[in-house]
Design a protein around this nucleic acid. Structure first.
Lengths: 352, 352
DNA sequence: CATTGCTACTGTATCGTTACAGATTTGAAG
DNA sequence: CTTCAAATCTGTAACGATACAGTAGCAATG
């Protein structure tokens, strides 16, 4: 066979299979290379040729074979969402996945969920992804001030974004909820209601947003002249039963607070239960502000003032940020902070 | 170069990269083919050789390149979870993803989340997966009695499992919650409390479990001699506000029921709101049984009797079933039904 | 001693794509 | 009439793995 046409498929590709570059090459009479280059709009391909190739490709519904691309170029077109199995407790995963996929839908990226058990090494899934080249970008959450995962990913140059900030002098993409501001505004609100002895159900101390929330809480106490009641026996990572029982004890003590800031929506449920077991009543003995990623508190306990943390939007921001990072945008342009706002009460529909 | 050793890598593979078959071939002095076959325990490789190869592979942490395997064999090692973006409303996705990944963690499979907008064609993601060979198996939910996705997947021979059953004479793997039994037991419970005018907040009529739940409800009415109050204006797919408003009207009418069966946990919230807006009280004017995939109802409205639907376990069952299907196990052995059970009240901890 | 059959191993081609290094044509410049 | 450059296209090799069709060596068979 003449060299000149050796790269041109001589046989029509089998019918059943999906179209490949070869199919298009055969149909257009061009070489496979030319077709490949035409589809990526390379400068050394004629305008008319590109047009023809694009037309045929579209007609037959050509979609590049991911395995082929991945093998040749190393590009996986995968974003990996790294989750603790325990994360579901907060019911946070679901809207986040939805938010991420909303953004990825308009891109060639697929979302792969990579779980790990918090009991074990949180680095394990990161290492796996790095070692096997399993993804082009990674989304991680539950960040710590000095986060080993962030260090490792940065060192190895794999694009990522964190849900939450770090404090290690590394500038990296992140999205975060402004927990400092949340706690500050919560205190403001409680003091405005005449509450002066405030308690905070805080995040676990090793996570970065622990100090954010505490800082906001304490700044609020200073600015609005209220006092803190210590409550460090439990945090939002503990079981509802643990939180409830610890809080009941507190509410029965001399030190019982009259204002509560809850760092999580499910934690709020437990606090309410503890409070009621201590025979206290919301709005009478106590007011409460809670962060809430869903609606149920507003519906079932409208007396709790809630600030909505929109996890779905967070998912969208995170997805945009990883992709930006992959595309080489500077990390400092890929950081965002979502501002808490008090939610209006449920509209009372019929008879408002 | 002598043909005999042409397949033996002559140069040590570059250090930085991850190990491949070539690396092992070089280290053992064997051919690439031999290494490949040894690792899959092929019968034509010597026992001692296999041992050596396995040892080296383990030492250097060899993991097969997924793109290579996928390109050559078509095996993707991917399970695709196909979700409606709207599904998150029920907060169902999160524990399901966790359950699935728990099972997949012990396998070579990755979980890819493939969303679609219910507004558009539910077949679109299925077609995408079929056309691009994106997955070895598919998990779908929100099944209908005659489900086009099930028909298509079956026709094209792609393994799948459904969350929910179908009624089209196709024997396929599924996992389902026994909604018939749920509604039946709910009616029994309500009647035992002296309730006789019962209402059902039902699933949307086009889904299979609509008729299951209705059948259970009606069988209960017959067996326990109660009456149904019609309430078809809304279903569990409607917004909480819509459900609440429709239910308030019902509760203010002549026809007001004294027993409620709620087909979803979030729907229950809206029903409670509607009921309270109509100045009625749970346990006094009305009792309620609700399906509940989470804990908050039990905590915040202990007077509602709940049957827990464990979505996490469902995820596990679904994952096991798809893999079973991929492995060629007969579909009829991959069907499971989870039995509803009433949940005990929250233990009152300290002073029980 | 040739044949057969078995065991244990190996080379080649291929999946679909792209990087790279040509190759051909055309037209303009010298 | 060269020579050169630009424009456009093409072949080859490679990514890592595996299916397939061998081959070499050796023992048993007739």
């Amino acid at each position: 066979m003449d060299n000149k046409t050796k790269n041109r498929p001589q046989t029509p590709p089998p019918d059943g299979g999906r179209p490949t570059l070869k199919t298009i090459a055969f149909m257009t009479g061009l070489g496979i290379t030319t077709v490949s280059r035409a589809l990526k709009d390379a400068p050394d391909i004629g305008a008319e040729t590109k047009e023809r190739v694009r037309l045929v490709a579209k007609q037959i519904g050509y979609q590049p074979n991911r395995a082929g691309v991945r093998l040749r170029t190393g590009k996986t077109n995968v974003i990996s969402l790294v989750l603790t199995l325990e994360e579901e407790i907060m019911g946070i995963t679901s809207p986040m996945v939805v938010g991420i996929t909303e953004i990825l839908a308009g891109t060639p990226y697929h979302l792969v969920v990579t779980p790990y058990s918090a009991v074990k090494d949180a680095l394990a899934p990161i290492r796996y992804i790095l070692d096997t080249g399993a993804a082009d970008g990674v989304i991680i959450s539950r960040t710590e001030p000095h986060d080993a995962r962030v260090a490792l990913l940065t060192e190895r140059g794999l694009p990522f974004v964190t849900h939450g900030r770090t404090e290690m002098g590394i500038v990296h993409p992140y999205h975060d909820f402004d927990n400092e501001r949340f706690a500050y505004e919560a205190v403001r609100k409680l003091v405005a209601r005449g509450r002066r002895k405030l308690v905070l159900l805080e995040p676990p101390p090793h996570l970065t947003f622990y100090s954010h929330m505490r800082a906001g809480f304490e700044r609020g106490l200073r600015d609005f002249q209220a006092d803190a009641v210590g409550f460090h026996q439990t945090n939002i990572d503990h079981s509802l039963v643990e939180i409830r029982d610890a809080f009941e004890i507190l509410m029965r003590s001399e030190d019982a607070p009259d204002g509560i800031v809850s760092g999580s929506g499910s934690g709020a449920i437990a606090l309410i239960a503890g409070l009621e077991m201590a025979k206290k009543k919301l709005t009478e003995d106590c007011d409460m502000v809670s962060k809430s990623p869903s609606d149920f508190l507003r519906w079932l306990r409208p007396e709790v003032m809630t600030m909505y943390e929109d996890i779905r939007v967070a998912g969208r921001e995170l997805a945009k940020a990883v992709i930006g990072h992959i595309d080489g945008q500077p990390p400092e342009t890929l950081q965002s902070l979502s501002q808490p706002e008090f939610q209006p009460p449920i509209t009372r529909g019929l008879r408002a």
